[in-house]
Amino acid sequence: MTWILANLGLIGDLMLVHLRLSLIPVVVSILVAVPLGRLAHRVGWLRGGVLSVVGLLYTIPSLALITLLPPLLGTPVLSDVNVLVALGLYGVALLTRSVADAFDAVDADVVRSAMAVGYTPLRRFWTVELPLAVPVIVAGTRVVAVSTVSLVTVGALVGSRNLGSLFTDGLQRGIVPEIVAGIVATVVLALVLDLVIAAVGRALTPWARVSGTSGAARRASRRRAHRAEVPGTAAEDAVTGGGAA
């Protein structure tokens, strides 16, 4: 406890660094996974291939991926870039599947009716399909954000300075509270990020909040969003997620 009180400044500082290291890969993975997942949804024969590749990517243990990247990227072994790229890859791996599922889950009749009304394909994407896919994509993003925050700590083993540094330092010097503080700070950070993304998701989907009478579709979409949160069930097909640690 005394250690924690004496080092509040350090913990706060590391939390900020940690947040930055987490946000970059999360944002990048959204930017990459949405087009990729959309592609997998649209192009039938690509779907299997894309999802298998990202699934395989996700099985690679994090420390192994981080150490394999320097020769591929030409970066120094002890560089934050390796950690960022590795986490970005995991994010893409997780989210691509969610995005593909999200677009699959948009009611085909709704898409057809938008087409019948005379939406151009581009406009239909931006104003109909993407908004309706948001709940499932948000659910996937929450999973990505939480696991990214937790995975950043592994970067401490390759010299990245973040909350994980409290683990390595605490182990070396035998200070239990230091490690506990690191764990708590990581979990808090993950939780806050999760809540923020959930709130953004709610703000983006006002229609999903109505208490309708015939809410079968809404219940179904909630069920799907729910499924994205359960690692075991998102893995219904050949590809399983859940490796990285």
């Binding site: 999973v143 939480v146 696991s147 925050v149 937790s150 995975l151 700590t153 592994v154 401490a156 083993l157 909350l163 994980g164 409290l166 683990f167 390595t168 605490g170 182990l171 035998g174 239990v176 490690i179 506990v180 690191g182 764990i183 990581t186 979990v187 993950a190 939780l191 999760d194 949160e229 359960v230 690692p231 640690a245």
Partner: peptide, 18 residues
Amino acid sequence: SGAARALPSLGLLFVLTL
């Protein structure tokens, strides 16, 4: 399972070992 995802396994391993 959500909470488990947030737990950093490295920290958990180190603190339990200590």
